[in-house]
Amino acid sequence: MIETRGLRKSFISRQGRDKKTVEAVRGVDLEVAEGEIFGFLGPNGAGKTTTLRMLATLIEPDGGTATIAGADLLADPGEVRRRIGYVAQGGSTWDDSTAREELVLQARLYGIGKADALRRAERVLEGFQLSEYADRKCKTYSGGQRRRVDIALGIIHEPKVVFLDEPTTGLDPQSRAHMWDEIRRLRAEGMTVFITTHYLDEADALCDRISIMDNGEIVASGTPAGLKREISGDVVRVGLPVDAVAAAAQALTSYKLETYEDNVRLYVEDGAVAIPQILRALDAASVPLGTIELHRPSLDDVFLTKTGRSLREN
C-alpha cells in the first residue's frame, strides 16, 4: 500500500547569520501492507513528521521515490491526495465552525456532492460518537472530542490510507484508550493506518508492524514481537533507592547496563543465571537493594540496542 525508496529531505536552518543544512530525513525505505496499522516510532525530532508530510504531499522530497495506494508521489501528487487522508499533529478545526460544517466542507473539497457529503458527515459523526456535539462550535469541545473530529475529517472521503501524526499526544489516558479503539476500527473498515508516535506502549499495543526512526534514518523494522525477539536474552531490572543508583552501576560494570532515576537495567544472556551473580555483586559492594525483576525486552530495549540511547530520555 505504501512503498518508499531512499526518501530524503533536508532543510536550511538559520541561526542568526549561520546557515546550516539539517538533514531531517536521510534515505527512508518503507513497506506498508494493505490493512495494517503501521507505526513510526522514534524520539521527537527523529524525522517522523517530515517523512509523513512528504508522504501526504505537503512537502516535496529532495530525493527518492514513493508509491502510495498505487499512485506515484512525485509524478502525480494530485492522485495521491485523492487516495489518502492526513491528520496533522496540531489539529485542524476552526473555533467558530461546528463539526458538521467542517465535515461537510471537507468532503466537498474532495469533490463529493452536497447530499452525499451530508450523509457521510452524519455517518462519521455517529461512528466517532460526536452526534451530540455536532452542531456546537469547535471551541466548546474537549481535547479528546476535538481529536476525534480531526480524525473524522481525515477519513470522511474514505481514503485507502490514512496518516495520523501523533494521534494521542496530549490526551488523558482514558481518551487515549478510546482513540486506540477508534484506530482499530479504521483498520477493521479496511483502511491502512500509518501513525507516528513516540509512545512505546502505543507502538507495542496498537501497531501490527513498526519502523523505528532515529536521526533521520530507520534503524529497525518489523512486528513489535519480532523486534523484541531479535534481542537475545533477558532484561533484569534492579530497583534501588535513588542515591544508590550510581554505586550499583559501579558494582555492575561488567554487565551491559543502563541507569535510570531509581533503577538500573541489565541485558543478560540468561536471567536465571545472572540474577544470583548480580545479587552477590551488589551485596559485596553493600548496595541496598529495592526490587529485582526479570522481564523480556521491551521496544525501548530494542531502541537502546540499535541506537545506544534510550527513548525514555526524550
Binding site: L58, I84, G91
Partner: peptide, 16 residues
Amino acid sequence: AELRAGVIERSRVTPV
C-alpha cells in the same frame, strides 16, 4: 490564524 489552527494544511492535503 487559519494557518495556526491547521485549517490551511487540512485544505492543502485535499485535491482542492
